[in-house]
Structure formats: C-alpha cells, structure tokens
Amino acid sequence: PDEFRDPLMDTLMTDPVRLPSGTIMDRSIILRHLLNSPTDPFNRQTLTESMLEPVPELKEQIQAWMREKQN
C-alpha cells in the first residue's frame, strides 16, 4: 500500500518516523539524508535525528501486512 512506502525513495518502510513537518519517512532513509544535509528534504527546515518521532502504530501495521504477504 502507498501509505507504507517512503515518500522520498518509494520503498517499503520498516521503521517509520514522523518529521516535524508531519511527513512520515523510513528512519534509515532520513538518517542517510541527514548525513549530507541537516534539513527536512521536503521543506528545507532544520532537522536533526532527535526531532524524528517514531510511529509505532504504522510500524505494526507494516509488519502485520508483511506477515500476511508471507503466508
């Protein structure tokens, strides 16, 4: 489902985090971005790792969907 895909890389998220802007991304992708630029890739506001907020409900939904697909 589209809501499980990272908006920057269009890959399935495994550890979704919410940026201060409200955008949800995969943690590994935003951390890689932050190594090059300490900004939100969508609005260029300053962004640090400590500002990332886990989204455990979405992570659980993704994991359940993945388990379902394996069966």
Rank of each mutant, 00 (worst) to 15 (best):
F4P: 07
R27C: 02
M9Y: 12
I62K: 02
P7L: 03
L47M: 08
R67W: 09
F42W: 11
E53M: 06
H33G: 01
D10P: 00
E57M: 11
Q63H: 15
D26E: 12
T23V: 14
P7K: 05
L8G: 05
L47Q: 02
T48Q: 15
R67S: 10
H33N: 02
L31Y: 07
L35Q: 14
P16L: 05
V55K: 04
S37A: 09
M13C: 02
P20W: 01
P41G: 04
N43P: 02
V17Q: 03
V17R: 02
P54R: 04
A64R: 13
D15M: 00
V17C: 08
H33P: 04
D2R: 14
I30W: 00
E68V: 12
D6C: 01
L35I: 14
N36E: 13
L35F: 12
Q63K: 14
A64P: 07
L8E: 05
R44P: 03
S50N: 14
L58A: 07
K59V: 08
P56A: 08
L35W: 08
T11L: 05
T48R: 12
L58K: 10
D10C: 08
N71M: 14
E57R: 11
F4G: 02
E68L: 12
M51V: 10
E49P: 10
F42S: 06
L58H: 00
S28N: 13
S37D: 11
M25R: 08
T46Q: 07
T14Q: 14
F42G: 06
E49L: 11
R32N: 12
E3V: 08
S21E: 02
P38A: 10
M25C: 08
R67Y: 12
M51S: 08
E57D: 12
Q70C: 13
Q61P: 10
T11S: 13
V55I: 09
Q70E: 15
I24E: 09
M13K: 01
K69T: 15
S28D: 14
T39W: 09
I29Y: 05
E3H: 08
I62G: 05
P16D: 00
T23H: 12
L34Y: 02
G22H: 04
D2L: 10
L8P: 08
R32L: 09
E3D: 11
Q61M: 08
N43H: 13
E3W: 05
P38D: 15
M13T: 04
Q70L: 14
L34W: 06
M66R: 10
I30P: 03
L58G: 06
M25Q: 01
F4D: 05
D40N: 04
G22S: 02
L35Y: 09
T48G: 05
D2I: 14
D2W: 06
F42T: 05
D6G: 01
E49T: 14
T23E: 07
P41K: 02
I29K: 00
N71S: 13
Q45I: 07
M66C: 15
T48C: 08
T48K: 10
L35K: 15
D6K: 01
E53H: 11
T11I: 14
